[in-house]
Every structure is written in structure tokens, then in C-alpha cells.
Design a protein around this nucleic acid. Structure first.
Lengths: 160, 160
DNA sequence: CTATATTGACCATCTTTGACTATTATAAAC
DNA sequence: GTTTATAATAGTCAAAGATGGTCAATATAG
């Protein structure tokens, strides 16, 4: 089932296992995977966004490159502030999921916890319009309970 | 005479004989049985629901799949069933917290997970009235993020 | 007759590609 | 040395492809 995009993502993450920064040639990488160069941009956009905790820099022309940098966080409280700011008053499920992935990659939440958070903020959990907090709470809680049992079933293993 | 749905159900259950989890291609399976793809959804909805002890996950697009996950034992899925029933359509924060404590006592969730669930369904997280899912999601997510960092700063300790 | 099953039309989401554009380095011309 | 042409990169965006989801109409089994 592994998709081209997933393979490229993994390839890059392997490269970054040691270093917080990696440079690569877009065209070379595309050739290595036998795909269109713009495919690389797609992977970067969907898996290495700022919300995922990465910054992309690049340069065109001879000797051009694409640089992927894993963002560093100074302090935990600063990081939390930044995240709360990013979330703000409104956030899409996709953006939230990117942030959750980032937290999981950083080891700040376990895979189970990440899944639990996802289940609480999923579109399907937030039934609107809703008349009372109790009704809304039930919807969110139900989703989380199901998630708990999914985790429990897998023997608390962390695969997300 | 065995219905198509029964055959598909059996086929999937055979696949799951060994593993508690199986991934399949909806279209492939439909083709295998010479039926409409949506027939697969029907089978999943009627025979692999949460009530039946299964959880369905899926992904669209290239490399898409349908994943069926079985909960470990009948008693566990029965327990979940009971809980979902108890939650029903509406639940107070107090009742929900009691359920969460019970799950923690049984060791089905860690202390961190319990705290995370509480933070998602707290009165303060469920800001109503609210105009959009994104706004509501932000409120819930913010609460959970704060909880994540509280857990993390406490050294990932699990005290309930 | 009623409950269950089946299908098909239409929708939503994710991925891959290709044509066109933008930028930079290097070599050539002056 | 500056200007100009050419090659070498990378970026953007929209279209096409590849899946799966939903729902209402219809058919079938009991």
C-alpha cells in the first residue's frame, strides 16, 4: 500500500534521522523515484509543512537545492505558546492533524495519545449544530471511547 | 441461500482469522465479488460496526484502503458497548469523569490519557454557542494542548 | 408486507503528472 | 568588466487519475 509519496517522505525522514537539516536535489530525487519533479514539492507541502515542524528553503539555478530544516524549539513553554497562537480561535482538522503529528514525532505524546487527540477533534466528533454542552460532550466522548478501545485492543502498541 | 453480504462478511472474517487487523481495497474486493463497491460499505456498516466489536478506518485517493480492526475480546467490546450506551446522546461532565476514572482504575487508559480525555470534554473546552466546527475544534484542541504540556513537563509521569 | 440487501449516480479526498514560469550560475561576446 | 545567451535548477497550478463515501431508489428474501 505504500504510496510513492509515503516512500519519499520516509526516505527524507531517514536522511534526517541524524541531522536536523538536509539538502537535496529535487530533480535527482525525482529521478531516483522515477516521478515528476513536482511530486517532490507535493510531498514537501503535505508532509513537511511548518505545522509539521519543518521549514523548507531552496535555491534555483545551477547548484540549486532544496533544504529541509527541522524546527527547533527553545523552551517547552515557548513552544506551547506558539502552538496556542497557531491554533487561535479556529483551526481546520488538517492543520490540527499536522500539529499532532509534529508532537508525536517530537515524542511529546505517545501514538495512543495522538490518536486520542485526533479522535476528539475529528469532524465527525464535532456534531454541529448542537443544543447543549452535554450533547456535544457525549459526541466527543463517544469518539474518544472508541479510540481507547482500539488502542487497548492493540495491546497499547503505538502505531498511528 | 447465502447472501452476497454473508459471503463478503465471511471472506473478511477469514482474512482476519490470524490478524486482528486487515487492510483491503474496496474496489478490488467489490470486483472479486462482482458487486457494486458500495456493497462493501453496506457489509462493513451492518457487520463490522463498533457494536460488533470492530473499528473501520479508511483513506481515499491513490493508495487508498479500508482497514478493519477487531477489538480483542467479546467482553471488551461488550464493555465498550455498555459505555457508549451509558454515554448516549448527552452526558454531564461529572458522569463522564466517573467513567474516565473507572477506565483508569481498570488500567485501560494511562493517567496521561485520562487527563487528556478530561481536558477534551471539560465544560471549559466546549464553548457554546459556537458558529463553526473550526471554532469549536480550536477550543477543544487548545485545552488538550495545554494538557499535553502539563503532562510533558511533569516528566511524562502517569499519576491520576 | 416488511426488513434486508443491492445498485448506481454523485460526491470527497488524495496522488501524480505536465505544461508553463521563475531564478541562478556560467560561458560567451563585447 | 558588463552584458547577454544558455543551461541548470526549482516553483506553481490546474487537470487527470485513483481511491473510498453517501444516499436514495430498487430489488429480494422471509
Amino acid at each position: 500500500m505504500a504510496q510513492l509519496s509515503d516512500n519519499i517522505e520516509q526516505f527524507i525522514k531517514d536522511l534526517m534521522h541524524e541531522d536536523a537539516r538536509v539538502d537535496l536535489r529535487r530533480n535527482e530525487l525525482a529521478q531516483h523515484f522515477g516521478c515528476a519533479p513536482s511530486q517532490i514539492n507535493y510531498v514537501l507541502a503535505t508532509r513537511f509543512s511548518v505545522d509539521h515542524g519543518y521549514i523548507i528553503e531552496s535555491r534555483r539555478g545551477g547548484g540549486g537545492y532544496v533544504r529541509i530544516v527541522r524546527m527547533q524549539t527553545r523552551s517547552e513553554s515557548g513552544f506551547l505558546d506558539m502552538l496556542l497562537n497557531r491554533v487561535g480561535n479556529s483551526i481546520s482538522e488538517e492543520t490540527a492533524n499536522a500539529i499532532i503529528s509534529n508532537l508525536a514525532e517530537k515524542g511529546m505524546v505517545t501514538g495512543n495519545e495522538a490518536a486520542l487527540i485526533r479522535s476528539a477533534i475529528a469532524r465527525s466528533a464535532l456534531s454541529l449544530p448542537v443544543s447543549s454542552k452535554n450533547v456535544l460532550r457525549a459526541a466527543v466522548f463517544r469518539n474518544m471511547l472508541i479510540q481507547v478501545f482500539r488502542n487497548y485492543e492493540e495491546g497499547k502498541r503505538d502505531d498511528v
